[in-house]
Simulated scan of single mutants.
Amino acid sequence: MNKTSFFDSLTEQKPDPLLELIAKFAADPRSGKIDLGVGVYRDETGRTPVMRAVKAAERHLWETQESKSYIGPEGDPAFLRALALETFGEHHGGRLLAGIQTPGGTGALRLAAELLALDKRRKIWIGTPTWVNHQAIFAAVGLQVGTYRFFDIGKQAVLDDEMLATLQNATPGDAVLLQTSCHNPTGAGLSPQNWLDIADIIAARGLLPLFDNAYQGLGHGRIEDAAGMMTVIETVGEAMVAVSCSKSFSLYRERTGAVYLFGDQHAQLNKGIGNLASHARASYSMPPAHGAAIVAAILQEPSRRHAWVDELSEMRNRIAEIRRAVAEAFAQFRPELANIASQEGMFSLLPISPENVGQLQAEHGIYMPDSGRINVAGMRVEDVASVAQRIGPYLA
């Protein structure tokens, strides 16, 4: 008698495209290969270094930390306070706020999604193209996902009219996902007027904004990158913000993040945090402590915080320098790509077909996702011209 496996009824899942890309790049023996796919910051040597401020904080923790006991489902209060002050400022838009620590920004988005999905009538609106994992996170909790076109890849321009028209017709109670800055995958930024218009529509329609805040400080500055988000919070009152420390502290593998709730009444926020903690307990129980302790140790001690601010500025300035070089080199093939210089953060989206992406891999050892998203921080300035010469003929 043949035994039936418990797993026979499962559906075969395709590998994650980005993880598969990393494996292909690692297996490529060519010395001149270039990885433009994986979403991490790299320095001029091609490394993703541990920040000096992080090293100093870890040294402090090694000398002073006395326990590795659990920190509880809501996380480290010192981390949550320090991160909130750094992210939202001292007055945080004149609103009350409460937060819960999470395993990275993805964990923060998933907890926020769990809270939104408690109302089965609710839909969340997402501009496309977007980070590949966004729709999967919200669909996994049963939320209805509505989309609108956010960016024209060929013109390298934000479609603000389509965005505002969609939000204008959203149903009261719906949620809206907004990326605070350094949009993934397009690099496109919103103008102050765009943010004012978004805030007015969200307030008038009774919508709930959920901000994905993953790159603060890598665009134009820590305060500048949060300005649009704070405009909306000040106008609307209630909001949710998922914060990741992966990029701005280079703590990718430590899985450090938080989700914050904004409102005007303590009782409502406490109820929200209680629901988030309940979902956390049933999922991962308690968040990892080490990364949060590092962030708290950096932000609470002036010399370490000053060192971190300086390093973040170095990273931001290097990305901006590469952007200018990329824009000049690629504009020779597509004039619209000059807009890459005015975009922000680590990513831009090229007008290139999946077939041509495959040819670039095979013929030149240049790796990027089929979408054409490139990590501009994956290049050295001196390599930009040669990379553009190889990619340029394949641009659609």
Score class of each variant (00 low, 15 high):
residue 2 N to L: 12
residue 8 D to H: 09
residue 10 L to H: 12
residue 10 L to A: 11
residue 11 T to H: 13
residue 11 T to Y: 08
residue 12 E to C: 10
residue 15 P to L: 04
residue 27 A to H: 06
residue 30 R to Q: 12
residue 31 S to M: 14
residue 32 G to D: 15
residue 32 G to I: 05
residue 33 K to M: 12
residue 37 G to C: 03
residue 39 G to D: 11
residue 39 G to S: 12
residue 40 V to D: 00
residue 41 Y to F: 14
residue 48 T to Q: 13
residue 49 P to S: 00
residue 59 R to V: 11
residue 60 H to S: 14
residue 69 S to H: 06
residue 72 G to V: 09
residue 72 G to T: 10
residue 76 D to V: 02
residue 77 P to D: 01
residue 83 L to R: 07
residue 86 E to G: 07
residue 86 E to P: 02
residue 90 E to H: 11
residue 90 E to R: 15
residue 95 R to Q: 13
residue 101 Q to M: 10
residue 105 G to D: 10
residue 107 G to W: 09
residue 109 L to E: 13
residue 112 A to W: 00
residue 112 A to T: 01
residue 112 A to I: 04
residue 117 A to P: 05
residue 119 D to N: 15
residue 122 R to Q: 09
residue 125 W to D: 01
residue 129 P to H: 00
residue 131 W to P: 02
residue 134 H to Q: 01
residue 137 I to C: 13
residue 139 A to V: 04
residue 139 A to S: 12
residue 143 L to Y: 10
residue 144 Q to W: 00
residue 147 T to C: 03
residue 147 T to Q: 05
residue 148 Y to W: 15
residue 150 F to N: 02
residue 154 G to I: 00
residue 157 A to D: 08
residue 158 V to L: 10
residue 158 V to E: 01
residue 159 L to C: 05
residue 165 A to S: 15
residue 167 L to M: 15
residue 169 N to C: 04
residue 172 P to D: 09
residue 173 G to E: 12
residue 176 V to F: 08
residue 178 L to E: 06
residue 183 H to A: 07
residue 185 P to E: 11
residue 186 T to A: 03
residue 187 G to I: 04
residue 189 G to W: 01
residue 189 G to Q: 08
residue 196 L to E: 11
residue 197 D to F: 03
residue 200 D to V: 10
residue 200 D to K: 11
residue 203 A to K: 15
residue 208 L to W: 04
residue 208 L to P: 02
residue 213 N to C: 15
residue 216 Q to A: 03
residue 224 E to N: 13
residue 228 G to I: 04
residue 234 E to K: 15
residue 240 M to S: 04
residue 241 V to D: 10
residue 241 V to C: 12
residue 242 A to C: 10
residue 247 K to C: 00
residue 255 R to N: 13
residue 256 T to C: 13
residue 258 A to L: 05
residue 262 F to L: 07
residue 265 Q to C: 05
residue 270 N to H: 09
residue 270 N to D: 07
residue 273 I to E: 06
residue 274 G to S: 02
residue 276 L to R: 00
residue 281 R to Y: 12
residue 282 A to I: 07
residue 286 M to P: 01
residue 287 P to S: 11
residue 290 H to L: 14
residue 300 Q to Y: 09
residue 304 R to N: 03
residue 304 R to K: 10
residue 305 R to M: 12
residue 306 H to T: 11
residue 311 E to H: 03
residue 320 A to P: 02
residue 325 A to F: 07
residue 326 V to K: 03
residue 333 F to P: 04
residue 336 E to H: 08
residue 342 S to R: 15
residue 342 S to V: 11
residue 343 Q to T: 15
residue 345 G to S: 09
residue 349 L to N: 04
residue 349 L to G: 05
residue 352 I to C: 00
residue 355 E to A: 11
residue 356 N to Y: 04
residue 363 E to Q: 14
residue 365 G to S: 05
residue 366 I to M: 09
residue 366 I to K: 03
residue 372 G to C: 04
residue 380 R to M: 02
residue 382 E to K: 15
residue 382 E to G: 10
residue 385 A to G: 02
residue 387 V to Q: 00
residue 390 R to G: 00
residue 392 G to R: 06
residue 394 Y to N: 02
